[in-house]
């Protein structure tokens, strides 16, 4: 049937195009055009419902309602994928932001903390815990 080929091709196209070229300007433009076409088709189907059945018949689908259902399935798949991608890219931005903050704070925090710790360690370590004999002390840390 024609409809099966069209629907399958649509699904494959969506997967490849939107996963491969996600967020490129051109892809975004096509997404918007697709949205406009979607709204246009919507209006048309509301005004002349019998026409959707005619289109469906041409494609080998029984009723216009079924055709719209099939198209919706592809639409939902696309939206799911699109949302997933968007979340991924947002997550990346948040991660970069949080990492920058965390490292900046840590540098300030640890500068004081570690030098203090090292001082107390030097006093106690001489007596108490002798580190593993092979450990070299050529470079002392935190210099």
């Amino acid at each position: 049937m024609v409809i099966q080929i069209i629907l399958l091709a649509g699904a494959i196209l969506l997967l490849t195009v939107f996963v491969r070229q996600w967020d490129r300007v051109r892809t975004r433009a096509w997404k918007r055009l697709a949205f406009l076409a979607f709204v246009g088709a919507n209006v048309y189907a509301i005004v002349r419902p019998q026409d959707t059945t005619w289109v469906a018949k041409q494609m080998g689908v029984g009723r216009g309602t079924d055709l719209i259902l099939y198209l919706l399935v592809i639409g939902v798949a696309f939206i799911t994928l699109n949302t997933y991608m968007r979340f991924r890219s947002m997550e990346k931005k948040i991660t970069d932001l949080a990492r920058t903050i965390a490292i900046r704070d840590a540098q300030v925090l640890n500068q004081d903390r570690i030098s203090l710790l090292n001082d107390t360690m030097r006093v106690s370590s001489a007596a108490a815990q002798a580190p593993t004999p092979e450990v070299e002390h050529a470079h002392s840390p935190g210099s």
């Binding site: 949080a98 990492r99 965390a102 490292i103």
Partner: peptide, 28 residues
């Protein structure tokens, strides 16, 4: 005795590793 880095929010183990590595790379 460890250096402490605190993620302001939970990001996951992979993110924590990357943060720790970035911090270590900045150490002389």
């Amino acid at each position: 005795k460890a250096h402490l880095i605190k993620h302001p929010i939970n990001l996951g183990q992979g993110a924590a590793l990357q943060t720790g590595i970035a911090y270590a790379l900045a150490q002389p």
